[in-house]
Computed example of a mutant assay.
Amino acid sequence: MDTRTAIVEAADRLFYERGIQQVSMDELRESAGVSLKRLYADFPGKDAIVLAVLEHRHAMWVSGLDRVAAPLASPRDKLLAVFDFLAEWFVTDDFRGCAFINAFGELGGSSPEVAAAARAHKESFQIYVDDLVEKAGATPALARQLVLLAEGAQTTSAIVADPTAARHARDAAEVLISAAIGAPA
């Protein structure tokens, strides 16, 4: 593993577990197993590391969605797979909610770059769902509703430590999809 990857993975783990502001650069350096000089050679400051972690998290999100949706044929099934992906994620030992929401909450007011990264990630997810809803033959309003269900499930599950939020959101999504495009054949 290269040094940059080691730093990003260590930062991801520490930031996600404890929060960005609670992790010092020295703790990050130690966890990544690099010198402070090397850390700053790869990243000029903490915001740069946060942005790299968010890029890493975005790639994990896209990969996870692709993994659950790729084997499915219909747009309807792919839409519901979003909630299956959430259900898998919510039961992991280290689930702490959406890293983008967490980062935005901590730094969005003071770091325009972090706020922009969070917005770009959320917009990317909306576009993904928009595309599936269009392929399913439903109106764009359904995509907005499904994204709100997914976002709400992430937040609820993180705050109340209840992974069943994904199942409840999936059940609601099935009702919305059936109302928009009819029951499955």
Score class of each variant (00 low, 15 high):
21 Q>R: 15
183 A>Q: 12
182 G>F: 05
34 V>M: 05
58 H>S: 15
53 V>F: 01
77 D>N: 10
115 A>C: 03
121 H>S: 14
71 P>S: 04
62 V>N: 04
56 H>A: 08
178 S>D: 15
27 E>Q: 13
94 D>R: 07
149 L>K: 05
60 M>D: 15
18 R>S: 07
158 A>W: 00
95 F>T: 00
185 A>M: 09
74 S>W: 08
26 D>C: 08
22 Q>R: 14
167 R>W: 05
161 A>P: 00
162 D>L: 05
62 V>C: 06
4 R>D: 02
19 G>R: 03
117 A>V: 03
53 V>K: 01
153 A>R: 03
54 L>D: 05
156 T>Y: 09
16 Y>I: 01
93 D>L: 07
137 G>D: 06
72 L>N: 01
179 A>V: 14
128 Y>Q: 10
145 Q>R: 15
117 A>Y: 03
5 T>I: 04
38 R>I: 13
181 I>C: 09
160 V>W: 10
178 S>H: 10
124 S>Y: 09
2 D>Q: 12
87 A>H: 02
185 A>K: 12
38 R>M: 09
95 F>K: 00
182 G>Y: 08
160 V>A: 10
54 L>S: 03
75 P>T: 08
148 L>G: 13
85 F>C: 12
62 V>I: 12
115 A>Q: 07
142 L>A: 02
100 F>G: 01
83 F>K: 04
65 L>H: 10
172 A>S: 14
20 I>C: 02
163 P>Q: 04
60 M>E: 15
8 V>P: 01
1 M>V: 09
32 A>V: 01
118 A>T: 11
148 L>M: 11
159 I>S: 03
154 Q>S: 13
17 E>M: 06
81 A>H: 05
2 D>S: 11
147 V>F: 01
26 D>K: 13
171 D>G: 07
117 A>K: 11
6 A>K: 14
20 I>S: 04
48 A>Y: 02
160 V>L: 13
139 T>I: 07
65 L>N: 08
75 P>F: 07
71 P>D: 06
117 A>W: 03
181 I>N: 07
63 S>N: 11
144 R>G: 15
170 R>D: 08
31 S>M: 09
16 Y>E: 11
116 A>P: 09
78 K>D: 06
80 L>A: 03
